[in-house]
């Protein structure tokens, strides 16, 4: 009897939740440490989203395992629309290749992608190459001579670089660091030859002339790095790998709630304040929702599976 009463009370509470979503605070899990690129992007977006949805948003950082710890913990949440995941692509499309994760790309309800940027490869000004093409030729001519810093073994950055290297038969020594900041420090100190990582940390050093960025991992060149070649111009357009961010929900979410959320995200991501904020980090907004987002995740997952396999990193 008591049990019935509780069930009825829960139903009474739960039913209008779908009618007037959202009616209480939303909890967003970020599978990365506070202060990093994914964290700042998500927190800034959350402040705008709070206004748009008229509810408060609590943020929980669960770092570790290249993102898999936070994502796995999130997977157990109920698909009520009050638990969301704000992540970058690596934990979803890269990590399952190199770790045995409990989730696959299709274990979530895709809501919307938010922004994207390329990775870049930079060298010091004395490096004997000044263009993307010459850079790859120099690497190909000296197998095993150059070291490049990256964001961690089996991370998207490493796979993005190896994807390019493999198609040109290049062998470079990967040195994994804890993140782009640490890579930058070791690059500036001359401990590694090549900086590999996101654009934003190294950008100021291209202006002071301490870094020469010769390649980006996107098909098109990046405006902020005029010297860096896009992959299209090198005939490697198919090998594009981006760093992009998205918001996901647990599998089995209500379609109306997903629609409310993706509409709200589309609006806030394209808010001039957010676009301007993204620009300071070298990122551009790119909202993809629904089936197109599912296809994007799956396509990247399949392409990186091949690279991971060739590198012997596959699980």
């Amino acid at each position: 009897m008591k049990h019935l009463a509780i069930t009825a009370a829960v139903l009474a509470l739960a039913t209008p939740a779908f009618a007037e979503y959202p009616e209480r605070a939303i909890e967003v899990t970020i599978p990365a440490p506070a202060g990093g690129g994914t964290d700042t992007s998500a927190r800034k977006l959350a402040t705008l989203l709070e206004e748009e949805l008229g509810t408060s948003i609590a943020i929980l950082n669960v770092a570790g395992g290249g993102g898999s710890v936070g994502v796995t913990q999130f997977m157990l949440q109920k698909p009520t629309g009050y638990s969301l995941l704000a992540t970058w692509n690596s934990p979803i499309t890269t990590v399952p290749q190199v770790q045995q994760t409990a989730y696959q790309p299709d274990s979530f309800t895709p809501i919307a992608s938010t922004s994207e940027t390329a990775y870049t490869l930079c060298v010091n000004p004395d490096f004997p190459a000044d263009t993307g093409e010459a850079f790859l030729e120099e690497l190909a001519a000296n197998p095993g001579k150059y070291t490049y810093g990256n964001d961690g073994i089996g991370g998207t950055m490493q796979l993005a670089a190896e994807r390019i290297f493999q198609s040109r038969g290049i062998e470079a020594v990967a040195i994994p660091f804890g993140g782009a900041g640490e890579t930058l420090q070791n690059f500036l100190g001359g401990h590694v030859d090549i900086y590999g990582g996101s654009i934003s940390p190294v950008l100021p050093y291209t202006e002071t002339g301490e870094a020469k960025c010769l390649l980006v991992t996107s098909a098109a060149p990046v405006k902020a790095l005029p010297q860096a070649a896009g992959l299209e111009s090198l005939g490697l357009g198919d090998e594009e790998t981006l760093l992009w961010r998205m918001v996901l929900g647990p599998a089995g979410m209500d379609a109306d709630v997903v629609a409310t959320l993706s509409a709200a995200l589309e609006k806030t991501v394209n808010d001039p304040a957010y676009v301007e904020f993204l620009a300071t980090k070298g990122e551009i907004p790119n909202v993809v929702t629904g089936a197109a987002l599912t296809a994007r995740v799956q396509g990247e997952y399949d392409a990186l599976a091949k690279v991971a396999k060739a590198l012997g990193l596959s699980q």
Binding site: G35, G36, R43, L203, P204, Y205, T208, E276, T280, K281
Partner: peptide, 14 residues
Amino acid sequence: LGALLIHGLQPGPQ
């Protein structure tokens, strides 16, 4: 650094 970025400032040597 994250807070500076959100306020539109670019961390770095400049």
